[in-house]
Computed example of a mutant assay.
Amino acid sequence: MTPYYAVIFTSLRKGNHPEYNRMAQLMENLAQQQPGYKHHESAREEIGITVSYWDSLEAISQWKQQLDHQMAQRLGKSDWYEWYHVRICKVEREYSFGK
């Protein structure tokens, strides 16, 4: 297995904003079009977590610089989140179980 990277985004939202859901869908669609994007997983209860997987640190950096993504980041800080935290990790090994 070739190592790859995970971006772990955890957050607490300020409330329920209809425009947030539209922007989240747009970001999901745009991320999937970015070079180096592999896939993502997400869940939300009180705290949300999204983990996106990327081929390289360069691909992550390019996604961070994408103009629509930058706009979403600004809106997240000003309107949508009480807080968020981003972690970038190198995945060197993986295994799974499923029936």
Rank of each mutant, 00 (worst) to 15 (best):
T2F: 01
T2Y: 03
T2N: 14
T2G: 01
P3N: 11
Y4F: 15
Y4C: 11
Y5L: 08
Y5M: 05
V7K: 13
I8G: 02
F9D: 01
L12E: 13
R13D: 05
R13G: 10
E19M: 02
N21M: 00
N21I: 00
N21R: 02
R22W: 00
M23Y: 01
M23L: 05
A24K: 09
Q25L: 10
L26W: 01
M27L: 11
M27S: 01
M27A: 04
E28K: 12
N29P: 00
N29L: 05
A31M: 11
A31I: 03
Q32R: 15
Q32M: 14
Q32C: 11
Q33R: 15
P35Q: 15
Y37T: 11
Y37Q: 07
Y37V: 10
H39N: 10
H39R: 12
S42T: 13
S42H: 11
A43E: 10
E45L: 09
E46W: 05
E46Q: 15
I47T: 14
G48I: 06
G48E: 07
I49P: 00
V51H: 03
V51W: 01
V51R: 07
S52N: 05
W54C: 02
W54K: 05
S56G: 04
E58N: 07
A59I: 03
A59N: 07
I60G: 07
S61K: 14
Q62R: 14
W63A: 12
D68L: 10
H69A: 02
Q70K: 15
M71T: 10
Q73Y: 03
R74L: 12
K77L: 12
D79A: 08
D79H: 12
D79M: 07
W80A: 06
Y81L: 12
W83N: 13
W83T: 11
R87I: 03
R93D: 06
E94C: 01
E94Q: 13
S96C: 02
S96E: 09
S96Q: 10
F97D: 05
K99H: 12
K99L: 14
K99P: 13
